[in-house]
Each structure stands twice: as C-alpha cells, then as structure tokens.
Amino acid sequence: MIAALGLILRRELRLALRQAGESATVVLFFILAALLFPLGVGPSPATLARIAPGVLWATALLAAMLSFERLFQPDFEDGSLEQLALSPAPLEGLVLAKALAHWLTAAAPLIVAAPVLGVMLNLPAEGFVPLIAGMALGTPAISLIGAVGAALTLGARRGGVLLALLVIPLVIPVLIFGAAAVEAAIGGFPVRAHLTALGGISLGALVLGPWAAGAALRQALAE
C-alpha cells in the first residue's frame, strides 16, 4: 500500500516537472499579488513593514489556491481517477499523495519566494524566520483543506470560484496565526504559541482532510 502511494507521488511529481509552468504560475501570482500592495498602499517603508506579514500570508494563501483545481480535475476527466480508485491504495491514501504532491509543487515554491518578497515589502529582519517557519507549518493544512475543496467541487459547474468560496473560510485560522507569528516576532514577543497552533491545525487537517476528500471522491466516482 505504501509502495502504491510512493508510485502515485512519483508520477504526480513527474507530471508536475513535465509541466513546470504550473509551479511557476503559482509563484508568479504570489509575487504579482504582493506587488500590488506597495503600488496601492504607497511605498513608505513604515506602512509596508506594518502590513507585510498580513500581505505575505494572504497572497501566499491565494496563490496556493490557484492549483487546487488541478489536483483531481485532470485525472477525473481522463479516467485516471477511477483507475487510481481501483488501485491497491485506498482513496484516503490517494488524497494524501495528491496533497503532498501539491505541497511540493505549489506550497514549497511559495516558502522559497516569501523571504524575497519580504525584502521587497520591507519586512523587519526579525520577521523572516517566523515567516518561513509559520509557512512550513501552516501550508500543509492549506494543501489538505484545498484537496477537500477540490474533491467536493469535482464535476461541478464553475468549479474555480466555488472552490475559493469553500476553502477560504476554512483556512482563516491558518492566516490569523501565520500573520500573528510574524508580527509577534517583530514586536519582540515569543512566537512558540502561534507556531504550535499552526502545527496543530495542520495535524487536524491531516486527519480531517483525507477522510472528507476521500468521501467526496467516492461520491464523484459513484456517478
């Protein structure tokens, strides 16, 4: 069973590499969206530093959302999903492999790009480590909840916008604790509580995500 998950993950990564454009678009969107704020709010370093944590986290979240639709939709349309459902790996394992593949191809690039944007948004020096640590701990929850959203909107009309409507309310806690961690570090306060909260949410998503997405896939395949 584990071997099957490994195979599926390797195939997902190979497919992602063959279409490297996918990860690139996620990072590009992240940079572009973050770029809008200095243009909109004004270049003054003080205000930028003040809003940088929130902007970085909010735009990273929206960027990660771009690639949720691609998680199951292509496999659903070309018949791979029903074949994967009939493989030795259970559907819940399939969801884990897909969420991990999404994390590697979409969330990880965001974590790499975030410090660069931090510099552009004049993020104070103390904020960088908690930003990266927070994103590392929080993005798994985003990938897993995104997988649930993607599975639920499989075969739905206008899936994209609907996916955002379903996922955004559910990832608000990740945004709150993520941004708060960076702000606390800047203010000289301890960040352990925020980071453990992020880790806790991701662990919760690790349990809830595969169950909910697996049930949603089972429904989509029972058509």
């Binding site: 190979r14 018949g79 074949q83 009939l86």
Partner: peptide, 18 residues
Amino acid sequence: HRARTRYIGHLDAVKPQL
C-alpha cells in the same frame, strides 16, 4: 476485490505528457 479486478471504462486514463 480491487486486486483481482481490472476495469476498462469509457475513458482511457492515458496521460499525454508521459
């Protein structure tokens, strides 16, 4: 049951990139 069954549906499950 999954291990002893092969199902060929209407769709071919072929990835163009591979």
